[in-house]
Structures are given as C-alpha cells and as structure tokens.
Amino acid sequence: MILNVIFSYNRALQLDYLLNSALEHFKTDYKIVVLYHTTGTHKDGYDLLMKKYEHHQRVSFIERKNVLFDSSFFKVIKSKKDWKFFKKKNLFNKHGDNFKGLLQKIIRKSGCEFVMFNTDDGVFFEDVVIPEEVFNIIKSNPENASYRLYVGENINGQPDYLERKQDYYLWDYYADKNIHHWSFPFAVDGTIYHSKGLLKHLEKMIYHNPVTLEENGVEYVWLHKIFKIGMSPIRSKLVATKLNRVSVDTLNPTIHIKPEFLNEKFLDGYTLKLVIPENIDNANIVPSEIYLIKGDLKELIYSLDDQGKKVQSLLGIEGAKEQLE
C-alpha cells in the first residue's frame, strides 16, 4: 500500500480538488493523510473539508501543532549551521511547529510499504496504475530507487539517455549535471519511495516545513548519492497548478488568485473546476480556465490572459526561470 502524505496550508478549496482527483484516478492501493496547518478563517475551510471527507476511509487529516521545540531535531544537530537553523526555525519560535517529528511519525506508524508526498496545488489528470516491476525495483533498492509521477515523454526536456521499458521509463539521476526533473533525485511532489528506506534518511535531515524538506532534502540526497534509480510512467499523471503562493519561503510565479477569496467561496458552498490543457508538456501549468461551481451556478473567475502566459513561460524544466515583477 502507498501512503500519500499531502502537505496543505490555507488552501482548502484547492485541496478538495486534489483529493477528488486522487480518489478518481489512483488505481493502486493507497491511503491519504493530509498534514495541514491554517491561519484565521482558513480553519473554517478545513473544518468544512474534514466534515466532507469524514466517511472516506482512505482519507484522514492531521494538524501541525505549535511547540516550544520539536525533539526530532536533536538527532540531526551536528554543526553550527544545524544549530542556527534549529534556533531560527523551531526553538522557542512562536511559529515553530512539530512538522518534522509529526511527518516521520506518520510514516513510521502508517503500516504502508511505500510513501509519496503531494502539495495541495497538484492535480492527478490521468489514471495512475503502477507496474508491479516498479514496486519490485523499489523493494530491492529501498534507499536507491523511486518512481516519479509528474514526468514522462510528454514533458518538455526529457533527456535522451532514459531507458524505455514496456510500461515505464528508467534512468540514473546522477547521469546529468544540469538541473532538471530527471537530475533532481528528491522531490515532495508525486514521487514514490520505500517508506523505511526514506524514513531512515528523513530522520537525519534538517527541515521544518515542505519547502525546506525539499531544499535540504535534495542537498542531503546529492551529498550521500542515494536514490540514484529514477522511474516514471510513459506519460506523466500529475501536474502542479500555479494559482497562488502561500509560502513565504518560495517566490515561484503564479497568477495570484487569492487563497482568502477561494476560502470564502468554499465556505459559501462552491467547488473548484480547472480546465487542464489536453496536451500537457510542463509539470507546472496555468489552467486555461478556472470555474467556481455551486449547484447550477458556474462562475468563470479566470481565463488565460497575457499575464498567465507570462507566468507559464517562466515555468521551465528547471523550475522558475526568473521572478515576475
């Protein structure tokens, strides 16, 4: 079974859309844990969302909690740099919480052999059926293999050194020094790992939220030259939708549809509908149209414009090429 841990912050409406897409398209045995935190009236949105999914046995919610310090850091503080990070991000920080220790506990107690992460701006747009051979490779290489759902031959920039098997691609993450999806051996979006193999290293990484988990995690993975074996479907199954930004730790370009506006609409009974391009060639997209739906009402709140096209042009295979003014 795959444990899908979804990281979420102040995006109840978008999270609802991701959950619906996962329940519709994921055809391999799985369960979902939403690891979330909120501010202000966004809490009401998550309370409503939890009520909506309370009868879904595959879906559960766990809230991050503010703590004086997260004791899981004690295993990883080995330098002045680590101590500085801990003091700044966690120790007696009024915004510090138990993200690191809680995430590791969720994986440890899940009983799932495999684990993946997602962020709440993602969407599964095609059925996900994972070949048994892929699982066997990960089982045989628990600290050295993973399967990435947001890449495939439809995504721009796929290198020519990938080996095509019958129903998946195989490659070496360290074959290329250029930074792109196929040389980035650790990600918090749609990449399946062996739970015990990953957990062993998560416990040794220093991080305090999803952004630093990926940033510090990939540095750790590069340093230790682990998770060398990459695999993916022939065509990608997951895409990130750049509606907005909720983290102050990243400056990725978006079309700036305010989370507060979307939360108000969700509390008023609206659901989200994104028009995803038929031919997806980028792992990050600006939807061509965005609707809010309530009963027979269908409200168009966004249609692709010049600003959206500019945002899309900045989202290359190496991430954001530059920042918008």
Rank of each mutant, 00 (worst) to 15 (best):
residue 84 K to G: 00
residue 93 N to L: 10
residue 63 E to T: 07
residue 64 R to Y: 02
residue 165 K to A: 12
residue 197 G to T: 13
residue 321 K to R: 14
residue 270 Y to N: 06
residue 129 V to S: 10
residue 102 L to W: 11
residue 226 I to L: 14
residue 10 N to Q: 06
residue 155 I to N: 02
residue 219 E to S: 13
residue 266 F to C: 05
residue 16 D to R: 01
residue 288 S to F: 12
residue 114 F to S: 04
residue 206 I to G: 14
residue 180 H to K: 10
residue 127 D to F: 04
residue 49 L to S: 05
residue 31 K to D: 03
residue 309 K to L: 09
residue 9 Y to S: 04
residue 274 L to E: 02
residue 211 V to D: 14
residue 269 G to E: 10
residue 282 N to Q: 11
residue 103 L to N: 10
residue 309 K to E: 06
residue 199 L to H: 07
residue 175 A to G: 05
residue 130 I to R: 01
residue 7 F to K: 03
residue 84 K to I: 07
residue 93 N to V: 08
residue 249 D to H: 03
residue 197 G to V: 13
residue 254 T to L: 10
residue 54 E to L: 11
residue 293 I to F: 07
residue 24 E to I: 01
residue 155 I to G: 03
residue 273 K to G: 07
residue 310 K to Y: 10
residue 242 K to P: 01
residue 20 N to R: 08
residue 152 G to A: 10
residue 244 N to H: 05
residue 221 V to I: 15
residue 150 Y to I: 05
residue 114 F to V: 03
residue 18 L to H: 01
residue 281 D to G: 06
residue 301 I to D: 09
residue 77 I to L: 12
residue 47 D to Y: 02
residue 89 K to M: 11
residue 60 S to P: 03
residue 140 S to F: 02
residue 16 D to T: 01
residue 199 L to P: 05
residue 324 L to S: 03
residue 217 G to R: 11
residue 54 E to N: 13
residue 212 T to W: 04
residue 205 M to P: 04
residue 198 L to C: 09
residue 58 R to L: 15
residue 126 E to N: 10
residue 200 K to I: 09
residue 169 Y to F: 15
residue 221 V to E: 03
residue 53 Y to F: 09
residue 75 K to W: 14
residue 78 K to A: 12
residue 13 L to Y: 01
residue 87 K to G: 08
residue 5 V to A: 11
residue 223 L to V: 04
residue 112 C to N: 15
residue 290 I to Y: 07
residue 233 P to F: 01
residue 195 S to Q: 13
residue 147 Y to G: 00
residue 313 S to F: 03
residue 179 I to Y: 11
residue 38 T to F: 04
residue 230 G to T: 07
residue 33 V to C: 07
residue 176 D to I: 08
residue 26 F to P: 00
residue 245 R to K: 10
residue 33 V to P: 00
residue 81 K to D: 09
residue 284 N to E: 14
residue 280 I to N: 00
residue 108 R to P: 02
residue 191 T to I: 14
residue 71 S to F: 10
residue 155 I to R: 02
residue 73 F to E: 08
residue 27 K to G: 00
residue 122 G to P: 01
residue 148 R to V: 09
residue 227 F to S: 08
residue 218 V to D: 07
residue 157 G to R: 04
residue 55 H to N: 15
residue 242 K to N: 04
residue 267 L to R: 01
residue 37 H to F: 01
residue 223 L to C: 09
residue 249 D to T: 00
residue 180 H to L: 09
residue 240 A to Q: 14
residue 276 I to S: 11
residue 311 V to Q: 03
residue 95 H to Q: 14
residue 185 P to I: 10
residue 208 H to T: 05
residue 124 F to C: 14
residue 277 P to S: 08
residue 221 V to F: 12
residue 25 H to V: 06
residue 4 N to M: 15
residue 85 F to I: 08
residue 263 N to W: 03
residue 276 I to Y: 07
residue 217 G to C: 13
residue 40 G to K: 08
residue 276 I to G: 08
residue 112 C to H: 12
residue 321 K to L: 15
residue 318 E to P: 00
residue 60 S to R: 11
residue 302 Y to H: 05
residue 86 F to T: 04
residue 224 H to M: 11
residue 145 A to R: 00
residue 256 H to M: 14
